[in-house]
Write a protein that binds this DNA or RNA. Structure first.
Lengths: 204, 204, 204, 204
DNA sequence: GATGAATGAGACTTCATTCAT
DNA sequence: CATGAATGAAGTCTCATTCAT
């Protein structure tokens, strides 16, 4: 666990995680070797084991970091959002405005791969489900409930259902466009998804 | 004599593919060893190489087989469907009625994993994209166009956009429920997705 | 051992040996698989084991056959040779007139490879040395002795020494030109070797 | 620290090459396994791949090393030789005085085997031919030309022809005595070869 | 702390040989 | 007899992890 007391160590750790992400993005978790990460991060094989006790753990910590960053980024964007509607619109906007770079595609694949891998290891699965429910779903739930309370959203919608629909669509679209390279279609699809969902939840 | 009927060989091949699917489903492609497949299929290590020249090729042929089966199954269900609306409804019904067994989850993971892996190997990516566009998108396109022609669906909708939305949502939902074990939510989510999409395309 | 009684079997055996020779020539003994030979001879894997009980044995029998053929060929050429000098000259002529085809190079390599391999297996080594001494050396010895007796060759030369020099030079040159593709140099070298050796043994 | 001196690594490399040579000598290239080499060199299976990226490459580098050593040894012997005649005599002496140990026989077989194997792989063949022509032939050519210039050797002899004859005879004799265990005959044969060749080139 | 040489289990693949048909 | 599917031992090579310096 990062000790902020030692700034140097923390920066080293970040740098290792970043290198790992880069490598996993390019070759996938299994095909990435510790040597790849070492080469990319310009450190030594031994050092990496001072920070993470195994490749598995490095993977897990990386993904935890990424989730944290995702929400930090979202919250950053939410600074000027008050209403639930504003938040929803801003969220869609964030995704809609993504440019489909090779780097982005790599990132998505790492996430998706992790999601699938996690399903195969009981301990990982629990971590993942917990994260999904406590963070992703919960996050969206709160927005929905806020919207329901304020009268922006229909009273009769089930927050949980909408939340899970939201993330499923997001992931479905990202999954597709992590392979398909069609920027324009991606944007239209997101626009359409936004309309469908907003239409479904807004009180007229 | 071991000069054996084509039928016998075909059945052997199927059995190997099935074993591979089982193993890939349980442990993922990379973590599955040829020994796993051999053990599962109760043959010998050498034999598998009489049928497939590498683990890679086995993987590819397996996925090709699965795609073929998917469409065979869909077409089977479509036997009594005339109108585009019937077809769309039937398609949703097929997915909606799936029971989320462990086996199904394995299957989905294999598909998703393949989709992601394929993105990392140029030759596989071409095969995948081709399959996606020529089969999945094309298949849906035809239904949409039929519906537009017959007046069932709105004239102004873009077939291609709807098709890609359709498959993205399907994949997104399947991806989620290949990890999340909540049958009820899955069904509701599918119902809702059906409404949204049908609402979007139906005239009136 | 070939039973001439069954002509068919004998021809089959020859065909297998020939195929083996072809394959060994192209890829070398170790890199040639039984499948290669089977493919080349258009028979079946099982059949080959009816004729030779192992790859080793096939190899050995092939080389035995080749030695036999070599001497048959030499004797064929010797039909009209009476004197020792004529025989020596004819022998040199045979080698000198060889055209350095790819096929010839293959053949030489097989022989050389066998010679080296044999040194590494006691039983083979005995067979090889026996063959070398009883056939190659003995053959040359007899010519030399004939020449000495008839006064063609110097009385003081040691037949055994000349014989072993003769075959060493032959093998050395063949070895080189099984790799080096220079027809002209080969011929000159043989001419020169002939002169040196004849000069050494002829009585003026 | 295992960050180790270049010298250490070089010695390790030499030791691996030496082990490989020993094993190739005993069993031949194809029959030698990496495990054999590892066992002989008392290291671990993985380590060898830190130094050579494949068995093939190890082989090639070994042979390159050996050629280098051969010429270093020859040049060592040449320190006190001025005239072309002295050099030729010294060269013959070197070969003549070799004692036909089992080790020497192994060494020769490795060289001969490599020569033959190389003929079967285009890239190796080019390396071999280049080495043969640029080093072996060239080396001898220079001596001959020196001798012609100084008047020791006949003006009319073709340096290239003599050179290739020289090496062919050397190789032929070595090849034979890598199998035939007759020290005495070997020496006589070399003596005789020396006389023949010197007789051929010396200006009386 | 940092380094990277060393380890060795285990992966994929090949192939001589067998044997049921 | 002939066939070629089946076998499995054994080969090459990889790579996460350790540890002496």
């Amino acid at each position: 666990m990062p000790k902020v007391s030692d700034d140097y160590k923390e920066r080293k750790r970040e740098s290792l995680l970043e290198s790992a992400l880069k490598c996993f993005g390019e070759k996938g978790f299994h095909s990435t070797t510790m040597d790849d990460i070492v080469a990319y991060s310009k450190t030594s094989k031994g050092l990496i084991y001072n920070y993470f006790k195994s490749k598995e753990e490095l993977y897990l910590e990386l993904m935890q970091e990424r989730t944290k960053l995702t929400f930090e980024r979202i919250n950053e964007h939410f600074k000027n959002c008050e209403t639930a509607t504003e938040k929803m619109r801003e969220l869609f906007k964030m995704y809609r405005e993504i440019t489909l770079t090779e780097e982005w595609r790599h990132l998505i694949r790492v996430h998706m791969e992790f999601w699938i891998n996690s399903a195969r290891h009981e301990n990982l699965q629990n971590i993942m489900l917990d994260r999904y429910k406590k963070q992703y779903l919960q996050f969206m739930n709160e927005i929905i409930e806020q919207g329901k309370k304020s009268g922006e959203f229909k009273k009769e919608i089930q927050a949980e259902l909408v939340s899970s629909i939201f993330w499923a669509y997001i992931d479905g679209i990202c999954l597709h466009y992590s392979v398909v390279e069609e920027d324009e279609l991606y944007k239209q699809q997101f626009k359409q998804t936004e309309e469908m969902i907003m239409n479904y939840i807004l009180t007229k």
